[in-house]
Nucleic acid binder design. Structure first.
Lengths: 239, 239
DNA sequence: CGTTGAATTGAAAGTGATCAAGGCGTGTGG
DNA sequence: CCACACGCCTTGATCACTTTCAATTCAACG
């Protein structure tokens, strides 16, 4: 029992029955948001904290010249805005990619969650994981070729999805258009398309119509230069 | 009084005399580390937390192919590893760029700091600021041209330096080689050099021998597409 | 069965990388 | 005090990858 959120946090720290009950209670009420809808807009004042229980979303930023950069993909169990009003305004927006089930946690509730050492630690670990992912993205954008970059992102998304139990098989449904992927990888849709074709030809993986099939995991990891530990580190519990 | 660290945190939250005294006490002892030395290595187990009191450092990652990606620049007052042992291993390294004055905070001391709401909030805000900076870097790498990227980084570094009182004038000493800057911006040193020349020719700024002079701030901000708020947002105190 | 948004392919143009050579400044030793 | 050496910056020429522009195909859907 519990939901994706409580399950995720449970995997990040030692949570007692009470902890889980509290987390569950706080996210018991949820609402459904249709796809392609902004959950939070850049510049917005802090409101309640959103948690994604089901579905996918992304953080993104629009540039003055009209370009878009996707900053992160959000999956079930992820926080939208962990800060809980510590900042005056959002510096980016969050949009749903699929129909999404969101729970909202009030400021008060959030404070009481953070008062519990165990819960606070788990939440903090989740955030550290997000930061590790951001560093991996920076590294990708700066020093990986386009094919490595694509392969790396696929490794990340697949592992994250598997960790939360979205898939067991070596394939996965990604509700991500090529345009969106291109905007997350800093390339044009046209070029992304060519890179996907190239990856297909290597036999490492196939991504078509949102269906990711990792036919040769070892090869994909090798192309990506993927450090299998970077996502796991955050899961392992430190002494 | 106090040091760069206490001053920085004081600027991020309402800290009482007691808070400041505690922060000061905990960072009272420091040691000097010579330039170009790793403070923390990727894969290292969590030890005490480092805080930079004086000097510059950077986070970086070495790729399988030998490339290097700089992930962040650290200035006086910045944390090296905020996590305090919540993760099992570092996923990147930290190296000094200049001679650096570092204080170390023991795990115990850190815990007691975090027990104080006021201090915990300030530290949390500092981290949120770091995250905002990472998002800006991702955006730069993904969707800004090289000249915009360079201009944007200079805006960031200048503003950060001014915020902590490193400079008042429109110029600043950056202890950053072109090689290092290139590794932080995802470009080659050769191309960075050309971009710097181009920026010089526009009249917006000059960077030579580590000396940054912003001759036309408005123009630089315009080239960078710099959102003057993104760094400030983290400074403004939310309701 | 046409319409629509996304994916795919081709050709040309551009941006940044690579390779290679020289210049400049600082520090050290003769 | 000068000369050399080393690291870093600068510049040129060429090459490669990615973008841009444009057109076509495809698949889902009304």
């Amino acid at each position: 029992m519990g939901n994706r959120f409580t399950e995720k946090l449970a995997g990040l720290g030692q949570l007692s029955e009470d902890d889980l009950a509290i987390l569950g209670a706080v996210t018991a009420q949820s609402r459904t948001v249709t796809k392609r809808r902004d959950l939070i807009r850049e510049g917005a004042r802090p409101g309640p904290i959103f948690v994604i229980l089901e579905g996918w979303a992304c953080r993104y930023k629009i540039l003055p010249n009209g370009g878009r950069q996707v900053l992160a993909f959000l999956m079930p169990g992820d926080f939208c805005d962990h800060h809980g009003g510590l900042l005056a305004e959002m510096d980016h927006s969050i949009q749903t990619l699929t129909s999404v089930e969101v729970a909202t946690i009030g400021r008060q509730d959030m404070d009481s969650l953070m008062d519990r050492q165990s819960i606070a630690k788990a939440i903090y670990r989740a955030q550290l994981g997000d930061e590790a992912t951001m560093r991996a993205w920076i590294t990708s954008m700066g020093r990986r070729t386009s094919i490595e970059r694509v392969a790396h992102l696929m490794c990340e998304l697949y592992l994250r999805a598997r960790t939360i139990g979205l898939t067991a098989a070596p394939n996965l449904t990604l509700p991500l258009s090529q345009l969106l992927l291109a905007d997350s990888l800093g390339m044009t849709p046209v070029h992304l398309n060519r890179v996907l074709k190239e990856l297909r030809l290597t036999g490492a993986m196939t991504l078509q119509r949102g269906n990711l099939v990792i036919s040769n995991p070892g090869q994909l990891v090798q192309i990506a230069g993927f450090d299998e530990n970077y996502l796991q580190r955050r899961l392992r519990q430190a002494a």
